[in-house]
Every structure is written in structure tokens, then in C-alpha cells.
């Protein structure tokens, strides 16, 4: 159980690590929009280069990035197949019985793979790898603060997220312990039919639920003992500040988006 990697924050002090989490949230959204702006080979090329530059800037090891790609390999493969075989165009590359492969299909497949790759890399670089989960919930709380005017309990949602994240490792630990305890009484989680295996989970899930409720209760009491009363009038210990770095970053991102649109107009090669 220990190797479940949740919250893959990679400690570091790169340019991206140092950015304001709110700005990183905005940047990652803009970056995703940018990946959808690309239409032709040049703009996609630029997009790919930008992803590589981001990886280098963040100083996250390539192996770690690849690990975040692995779960979506199937989706990537599926996209490739769909695009190659089901896109019809003008330039026929290959034909055999009912299979027709067009240049457009191949190009579409490459573009889509690039787009998904950049999407994942962008989101994980700006958010999960370089921002601690706590900083992220802080950022979400502050970015959505205006919604408080229309009575959306933004602070409460952010607090719930923080607490949920905080307790993930605790729960994993707890699950581990309960599993060991039930194994000591001869419980078997690995063999038998699917139904038997599902049944074997009951001795884990019930104690886990019970202890989660107990923990929640204790936490609530502890918070009340320290006079927690929600977001109203609450000041923060660490106040986020936008710095020059953040403004430069967003300027670069906007320029990047605009240049992608302009490059699309060049009309070189196939346009998606």
C-alpha cells in the first residue's frame, strides 16, 4: 500500500516552484487553452518545444514525468488508432481491403497525441509536481473568493479539501494496519472468486469507516477547542504575493498563445 503515490509534489526550488500558486493555476489553465489553439505542424512543434522547456525549467526528472504519462498510455494508443483508421482525407497513404489510411489521419493522430501529452505535462508540472497540495487549496480558495458574494462557502470547501488531502496518508497507514490485523486472523484478500474477494473487504472497510468517523469527530472537537469558526474574519498566516516573476510568466504565456494563433495562419502543410 505504501507505494500509492498521491500528491506527487517534488520538492525543489526551480522558477516554477517559486511562482505563486494562484498564478500557476491560471497558467495551467491558459496552457491547456494554448494546446487547443494549435492547428498546424508549426504551432504544434512550438507547443512541443514549450513543454520540453517547461520540464527543463522545473528540473523534474524525466522519469517522473514519464510515470505520470504511463496511466494514459492506453488512452493515447486508443486515440492513435481511432484517428489513423477513421479519418478520411485526400492523400491516401495505404489501402488494404477495407482499411484506408490517409495522411490527414496520421497527422491528426500525431497532433492529438501531442495535445494530450502537453495537457498532462502542463497540468502536472504547474500543479501537482511543483505545488504542495496545501498551497494549491490555498490558491483555489483565493481565486474563488469572489464567489463568496453569492454565498458560495469557498473557504469551507477549501478547508474540506485541505483536510481530505491531509488525511490520505493517515488513511493509507490505517488501511495497512487493519489489513495486517485481519490477515493475522487468517483473512485472505488475494484468492477466491470475485465475490469472495469483495466480501473479504468487509473486515477492512468497516473498521476503516468507524475509525474515519472517530477521527473526524476528534478533529472537529480539536478545531472547536481552538475556536475555529469558518472563514468569516479569518486572517491567514502566510499571505500570497504576486511577484515580478509571476507577471513575466503570464506575459510569456499570453505571447505564446498569440503566437500560436498567428502561426496557425501561415497555412503550411496540413491544418487540423
Amino acid at each position: 500500500m505504501k507505494n500509492i503515490s498521491l500528491g506527487q509534489y517534488y520538492p525543489g526550488n526551480s522558477v516554477i516552484h517559486r511562482m505563486d500558486p494562484r498564478m500557476k493555476l491560471i497558467l495551467s489553465l491558459l496552457y491547456i487553452v494554448c494546446s487547443f489553439l494549435c492547428r498546424n505542424i508549426i504551432s504544434f512543434g512550438l507547443l512541443f518545444v514549450s513543454a520540453i522547456v517547461l520540464i527543463l525549467l522545473s528540473r523534474i526528472p524525466m522519469s517522473l514525468i514519464m510515470r505520470s504519462i504511463r496511466p494514459i498510455l492506453f488512452i493515447l494508443a486508443f486515440t492513435v488508432v481511432i484517428n489513423i483508421f477513421w479519418t478520411s482525407g485526400e492523400t491516401l497513404l495505404f489501402e488494404w481491403k477495407f482499411i484506408h489510411i490517409y495522411l490527414e489521419g496520421v497527422m491528426n493522430a500525431v497532433f492529438m497525441v501531442l495535445r494530450i501529452f502537453v495537457l498532462i505535462v502542463g497540468a502536472s508540472l504547474f500543479l501537482t509536481y511543483t505545488t504542495t497540495p496545501i498551497a494549491l487549496t490555498d490558491a483555489i480558495e483565493q481565486l474563488f473568493a469572489p464567489l463568496k458574494r453569492i454565498k458560495v462557502p469557498v473557504h469551507e470547501f477549501a478547508m474540506m479539501m485541505t483536510i481530505a488531502l491531509r488525511f490520505i496518508p493517515t488513511l493509507i497507514d490505517e488501511t495497512d494496519k487493519i489489513m495486517s490485523a485481519q490477515k493475522a486472523r487468517g483473512a485472505d484478500f488475494t484468492s477466491g472468486s470475485l465475490i469472495n474477494r469483495a466480501k473479504a473487504l468487509i473486515p477492512i472497510l468497516i473498521p476503516l469507516f468507524v475509525s474515519s468517523f472517530r477521527r473526524a469527530d476528534e478533529l472537529a472537537t480539536a478545531m472547536e477547542c481552538r475556536c475555529y469558526h469558518g472563514g468569516e474574519g479569518r486572517t491567514r498566516m502566510s499571505i500570497l504575493h504576486y511577484r515580478a516573476l509571476d507577471f513575466i510568466a503570464i506575459l510569456i504565456m499570453i505571447t505564446f498563445g498569440v503566437s500560436l494563433v498567428l502561426l496557425n495562419m501561415l497555412g503550411i502543410g496540413y491544418t487540423m
Partner: peptide, 20 residues
């Protein structure tokens, strides 16, 4: 190994949390 666990009974820490 499951059979060993019946011969060597282990009561873990705070075993009351495993009652279900």
C-alpha cells in the same frame, strides 16, 4: 504462510479497532 498465522497468533497494537 496463512497456516503459520493460525499457529502464531498476533494481537496487534490497539486491536479493538479491527472489530467489525
Amino acid at each position: 504462510i496463512g497456516k503459520i498465522r493460525f499457529r502464531v497468533g498476533l494481537v496487534m497494537q490497539y486491536p479493538e479497532y479491527q472489530l467489525f
